[in-house]
Design a protein around this nucleic acid. Structure first.
Lengths: 149, 149
DNA sequence: TTAATTGCAAATGGTTTGCAATATT
DNA sequence: AATATTGCAAACCATTTGCAATTAA
């Protein structure tokens, strides 16, 4: 729970109140790290533990955390917005592999975009500050299954 | 208008009717190639020319074209879905530069992901069939202006 | 105590759908 | 003439908002 208290003190530092609803949302996010949950899924889990908390509060908490850059959201091809806790410092140095068969989302740590970004700067003078890269395809398991069918 | 008739015959080939609404939507898409219009913007332009055509029809036409892979849609950070006509054969070999200041969308033709994709296949056995890459930052004009301010 | 936060329900905005009327083949 | 397509309005779904009640500081 060291992660939880770290975020809690960041909230306090910025003058936000440490409410029960916020703690419950954070607990769900931490317990499900790496799962890329939707707001609906987060709400359901929070609601299971603490039925009093409403969807609006969940949304407000997610927005707050995103504004604080403790949380990131991303739209995937199924049209759903999914959330993931920031990985400490350089969060955005990872990409997503999305399996078109089982919808699994795998993270890749490589950041091989530096070279591309340099080229773009040289050629277009476009100053890049962030990027979003998703690969769509078939995960190991689904790809093997597919070949058998 | 060679582009329009090419798409028209593809529609016919697949047994779809060549209706006025479809032609009007296509004309707007072709006239605005490279602009990454939203459904709303497309509707407004279509509606200006032919007031009878409704939003639902525009949506149905966009979905049809997308299904036929003549059109691609993408969600940008402003949360809006934007459409672009497929560039002939290997449409997906380009990326987007999105200016965070003026919201301009610039296309880059480079496809330097092959190396990354090869690495991912080797390491993870994830079979990539498509990708989506967006760079966020500041275009030449906005970046220069920013420095002066 | 007091200002921020919450829960609820209503509002919003974008997209989809049912259906009877219409247009294309 | 037969069938796909359309326009309209209503339905839908995710997200946001207003407001009075509640809670953390």
């Amino acid at each position: 729970m060291t992660n939880l208290s770290r975020i809690e003190s960041e909230l306090k530092e910025k003058g936000y109140k440490l409410t029960n609803a916020r703690i419950e949302v954070l607990k769900v996010l931490i317990k499900n790290e790496g799962k890329h949950l939707t707001s609906q899924e987060i709400y359901e889990m929070v609601h299971q533990n603490t039925p009093g908390i409403g969807m609006a509060t969940v949304y407000r908490t997610l927005s707050l955390l995103e504004e604080m850059r403790l949380l990131y959201s991303s739209v995937f091809t199924d049209g759903k917005v999914r959330y993931e806790l920031a990985k400490d410092d350089n969060h955005h140095k990872h990409h997503h592999l999305v399996c078109l068969n089982c919808n699994k989302i795998i993270e890749v740590e490589e950041d091989l975009l530096e070279e591309i970004e340099k080229k773009i700067w040289e050629k277009k003078k476009f100053k890049i500050v962030d990027h979003s890269l998703k690969f769509y395809g078939y995960c190991k398991e689904c790809y093997q299954k597919e070949k058998k069918d």
